[in-house]
C-alpha cells in the first residue's frame, strides 16, 4: 500500500484513515482522517469529548477502531500491537498522566532507552542517554526524584522525555501544556519546533489556543467525532463551522471549555 500524497506532494508519515470508534451507542469517532508529514507539527483541536484522545489511542494501538486504518509511512499497521507500533516509531504522551510513579525521573526515561536498545542497534549507554534526554527537556534537576512526588507540570515533562527517548518517528502529544507554567510552555514549544527541524512528525492535541496557533502548520478540528475543518491556523480560526463548534466562545475564543448555552 502506498501513502496518500498530500497537497504539496510530500508523502504523509502517518495517516489515520476513516477511523470510527463506538462506545456502546455513542460514536466517539466517525470516519475521522488525519495525516502528518515528516518535519511538521499538526494540531488536533476540538471541544472536550470530541474524540481527540480516542484518536490517539487508535493511532498508538491502545484501542482497536471499529472501522478505518492507521498507516505509517505507507504500511498499514492497524493490526499491530501497541509495543510493535512503538518499535516502529510511534510515541505518545497521555492527557491523564501515565508516568511510572514508583521510578525516579531518570529511570522513567531509562526504561524507554533500554527498550530502544533492542531494536535500535546504535551503541549507547542508557543512563547517560536518559540523562541527556532529561537535560534536553529541561528537567535534569529532578532526575533522581520519584515522579509520584513531582509537580504535575514536571511529571508531564518526564512523559515527554520518556516518549522522546524511544527516538520516535511520530510523536503524539496529548495536551502537553496543561499543568505547565508560561515559561515551561514556551520551552516546550521551542523543543517541539526543534524536534520538527530534525524531521520528526508531531501530532498535537492542545487547549491552549495561542500555543496551537503559534506552533502548528496545519490544524484539524474535531467535533462530535468528526473532522469538521482542516487547514492553516488562519483558515481554521475564521471557519464558521469551527466557530459554531466552539459555541458561544467568541468572547473567549476557543478555550475549549464550552459553557452551556
Amino acid at each position: 500500500m502506498t501513502g496518500t500524497m498530500t497537497g504539496d506532494g510530500r508523502r504523509a508519515r502517518l495517516e489515520a484513515r476513516g477511523v470510527t470508534v463506538r462506545f456502546g451507542g455513542l460514536a466517539a469517532l466517525s470516519d475521522a482522517s488525519v495525516d502528518v508529514r515528516a518535519g511538521e507539527v499538526v494540531g488536533l483541536i476540538g471541544p472536550n469529548g470530541a474524540g481527540k484522545t480516542t484518536l490517539f489511542d487508535v493511532i498508538c494501538g491502545l484501542r482497536a477502531p471499529d472501522a478505518g486504518s492507521v498507516v505509517l509511512e505507507g504500511a498499514d499497521i492497524t493490526g499491530r500491537s501497541v509495543h510493535r507500533r512503538a518499535r516502529l516509531g510511534i510515541a505518545r504522551t497521555f492527557q491523564k498522566l501515565e508516568v511510572f510513579g514508583n521510578l525516579s525521573a531518570v529511570d522513567n526515561v531509562r526504561v524507554a532507552v533500554e527498550m530502544r536498545r533492542r531494536w535500535d542497534r546504535s551503541p549507547m549507554r542508557p543512563l547517560a542517554e536518559a540523562a541527556a534526554v532529561l537535560e534536553r527537556v529541561g528537567i535534569a534537576a529532578v532526575a533522581g526524584e520519584a515522579v509520584a512526588g513531582l509537580p504535575t507540570g514536571t511529571a508531564r515533562l518526564v512523559e515527554l522525555a520518556r516518549a522522546l527517548a524511544t527516538n520516535p518517528r511520530v510523536l503524539l502529544l496529548d495536551e502537553p501544556s496543561s499543568g505547565l507554567d508560561d515559561s515551561e510552555t514556551s520551552e516546550v514549544a521551542g523543543l517541539v519546533r526543534s524536534l520538527c527541524d530534525d524531521g520528526l512528525a508531531v501530532l498535537l492535541v492542545e487547549h491552549d489556543m495561542s500555543f496551537v496557533m503559534d506552533i502548528c502548520e496545519r490544524i484539524f478540528v474535531l467535533d462530535f467525532g468528526r473532522i469538521i475543518a482542516e487547514g492553516s491556523p488562519q483558515d481554521v480560526r475564521v471557519d464558521p463551522a469551527v466557530q459554531a463548534a466552539y459555541l458561544g466562545t467568541e468572547a473567549a475564543p476557543m478555550n475549549g471549555h464550552r459553557q452551556a448555552p
Binding site: G61, A86, A91, V99, F100, L103, M115, R162
Partner: peptide
C-alpha cells in the same frame, strides 16, 4: 537492573510501558 525497572514500570502503567515498546 533493566528487568527490575521494566517490571515496576509495567506495574505503574501497562499502557505507557507498551507505548515504549515493552511487550507486556
Amino acid at each position: 537492573s533493566r528487568w527490575g525497572r521494566r517490571w515496576v514500570a509495567m506495574k505503574d502503567s501497562e499502557a505507557a510501558a507498551a507505548t515504549l515498546g515493552i511487550n507486556v
